[in-house]
Amino acid sequence: MGSKELKDRKDLDELVEVVLPGAVEPEELRFRHRDIPVPGAGQIVVRVEATGVSFAEQQMRRGRYYDQPPFPFVPGYDLVGTVLTAGSGVAPDLVGRRVAALVKVGGWASHVVLDAADAVEVPAGIGAAEAETLVVNGITAWQMLHRKARVRAGGTILVHGANGGVGTVLVQLARAAGLRVIGTASARHHDALRELGVTPVDYRAEDVPARVRELAPGGVDAVFDHLGGRSVLDSWRLLAPGGTLVSYGSATTRDDTGSKQWPVLKILGRVWLWNALPNGRHAYFFNVWAGRALNKDRFRARLRADLTEVFRALERGEVTAHVAARLPLSEVARAMRLAESGTVAGKVVLIPDAQRNLPEA
């Protein structure tokens, strides 16, 4: 075994991955077994320790994610794991280290091949599941708050879905930055939000715009809206002069039929129009992948810097990793059902297991 390989042979058995064969129910996801690939130049093979169920996979299984690949494919937006092997041109001491990565697809597997440049080291002392809750959710929250909204300390923001994967991280980062936070969630999550210093609003029982106007008569300095649809219009109208709307999804259209691009294109059209008006407010449609195609090196540097800041916030206690549940990869259907139920706070994490009797694709 070469100097760039871990010495534990049990890690080199086989690769197991989840396959999404089409627009199916969670129970129709399949498993595929194949040999663990050999990394090419500049690549690494990561033994996955934790991956997660995000809203993206919920949309993908319905064929509703904006730019998902054609079926069949392996879902899994992000992952945390240990570098198992490395190809030429990769620093040998990276082998054996725990790293995190955004992949968009492919993370629901026991092993994943990555470009080494896309891996971000996880600080010692942070567990795999805890780190996993902060990869796509943490990057999204950090960049929306600090690179887009840029609200000064003392300002007030509104976070829709404050109990969700992104929302939970976002409200904590905002509180650490000295912001007042109003957060929408169902009543079952209000006590937990109050413990985080958030003023909760029940989106099921209250008129959200009216209640937010009561809490912030002059408007809010920023709104973070993952809902899309009608909510984007209400969010724009709740902004104070100079305020910023950051839209980053279309959750309300998850179960719709028809074009999966149209809900996003509609938001983009509104954002363009609002920014063209001389109203002193700003709007963005945030996509964590924006800019990668134009300047991959800059994208990677920003990703590494921002995710490192999120991990530091975790180490300082400013952010808590909210693991809603840890389930083995073999129970991915159960994990997806749980994530889609809307009954949990934080992120459902998948822990790849060593089972070898899983149904084949």
Rank of each mutant, 00 (worst) to 15 (best):
D207P: 00
D207I: 07
V208Y: 10
V208K: 08
V208N: 12
P209W: 15
A210C: 12
A210Q: 14
A210R: 13
A210M: 09
R211V: 00
R213V: 11
E214F: 02
E214L: 05
E214W: 03
E214T: 05
E214G: 01
E214K: 08
A216G: 05
P217A: 09
P217H: 15
P217F: 15
G219T: 13
G219P: 13
V220I: 12
D221Q: 14
A222L: 01
V223S: 05
V223W: 06
V223P: 01
V223T: 09
F224C: 03
D225N: 09
D225R: 04
H226C: 15
H226F: 10
L227D: 09
L227C: 11
L227K: 07
G228M: 03
G228H: 01
G229S: 05
G229N: 03
G229H: 02
G229Y: 01
R230K: 11
R230N: 08
S231A: 15
V232F: 04
V232P: 00
V232L: 14
L233A: 10
L233Q: 02
L233Y: 07
D234P: 00
D234A: 15
D234L: 04
S235H: 12
S235T: 12
W236L: 15
W236Y: 15
W236S: 08
R237I: 00
L238K: 12
L238S: 10
L238Y: 06
L238Q: 10
L238M: 11
L238T: 13
L238G: 12
L239M: 12
L239S: 09
L239Q: 09
L239R: 08
A240K: 11
A240M: 05
P241C: 10
P241G: 10
P241W: 08
G243A: 05
G243F: 02
T244R: 02
T244C: 14
L245C: 09
V246A: 01
V246G: 06
S247W: 01
S247A: 15
S247D: 10
Y248V: 11
Y248T: 12
Y248S: 15
G249D: 07
G249W: 05
S250F: 10
S250G: 09
S250L: 13
S250P: 00
A251L: 15
A251F: 08
T252R: 00
T252Q: 03
T252S: 14
T253S: 13
T253E: 09
T253A: 07
T253M: 08
R254Y: 06
R254P: 00
